[in-house]
Write a protein that binds this DNA or RNA. Sequence first.
RNA 1: CGGGGCGUGGCGCAGCCUGGUAGCGCGCACCGUUCGGGUCGGUGAGGUCCCGAGUUCGAAUCUCGGCGCCCCGACCA
Length: 410
Amino acid sequence: MTRLSSYLLPTEKQPPADAEAVSHKLMVRAGLIRQMGAGMWTWLPAGWRVHQRAVQIIREEMNAIGGQEMLMPVLQPADVWRRTGRLDIDALFKLTDRKGSELVLAMTHEEAVTFHVAQLVRSYRDLPLILYHFQVKERDEPRPRAGVLRTREFIMKDSYTFDRDQAGLEERYELHVGAYDRIMRRTGLRFYRVQSDVGMMGGLGAHEYMAPCPAGEDQVALGSDYAANLEVAEHDPDVRKVGDAYLLGSEPLTIAPAIEVGNIFMLGTRSSEALGARYLDEHGQEWPIWMGSYGIGPARMAAAAVEQFADEHGICWPKSLAPFAVHLVAIGAESSPERAAAETLYETLRSGGVEVLYDDREAGPGEKFADAELLGCPVRLTVGRRSLESGEIEVQLRRGRRAGPALSLS
RNA sequence: CGGGGCGUGGCGCAGCCUGGUAGCGCGCACCGUUCGGGUCGGUGAGGUCCCGAGUUCGAAUCUCGGCGCCCCGACCA
């Protein structure tokens, strides 16, 4: 049911007064998202379609490397967090139930998944495992910002790998590198895989997937054969700082803002030892399980796409993330022959399996074109009196607003 | 958490300084008009002026307290 006359797509001419980032302004203006509080956002129907498209791409690539989808709770007992030493993290929401039991809202799911694996995995025969889910994360961020770019609640695909040794972990890690590379390529985003700081969690190695864009919160250092989070580059002995510039050997590095869309992380055995996730090998000897954790955010993928491809008229979705493949604009008075032609075309496209948003509203052509360009579906089809006269449907490709090859109405 | 800013119909704003019971544009409803780039005209609906207390005959406006939101920074497992 995607007739615009009955679809909740609340477009606005003006951006929210306090919006700064392009994606914040445009996603609200295009009717994709709406704010409920600081860092709390609702995905409206068209926005949710974009989110779901990102989710589906991720799901397909995770399944392709042997990932098993499951679902773990957001509301969790505080105890496992105490055992991993993460209960005192400031960003962790804590609460008590009516009986006074301590609970947390999970900001990530290492504790939950390791808790289960500790119970369920006993033998080397049970390994390796790649487990993942799409689940809400709750983080008490000191400063949410930029629309959907940094929120207190968001959906993340997080996967966790379990191996008998470091070599196995490295294998699982490489599988994720492949999957994440494919995910990013399929989204059509410009991206870099950069070395990242292993941070307070320790760990053996990590990469971040960064999408360059002006609203990005991170900085990446880029050379012809080098890409790293700036924080990492600054501690790289091969990188020299000369004035404001960074040099790798003699090559100057470009510093660019970017959004962190995903990250992959070789955890090691820290969590598994804290929660008793061990297995027995062929000789009956007990070992800790080697873990990796891997996250990617569909919402950030969507926002990054808006940031990277928008123009002065609105969003220009990559095909893979667009809410609809086709935006069909009907021009002409309500019961005119051209409107009847548009109706027929809509039904034809729909029954042919094309995801089409049909603008059948009683509105003028200018308003319809403006909304179509704001929403940014890759292809716009226009049916009006001209179409009946020429026998052709006008095709506009959103990116660059180029005319596409006209289609015969018949 | 440090610094700055802002809360007035759905959205964007004016009014506040200098107190007298709320206005503009867009949007919305209805009638007519128009139909290839946000048409035009008419009529109309819609507001606890963020909340509470105080000052005053009278508070959107002044005072105090609180809450919320945004931006910069710090933070970001």
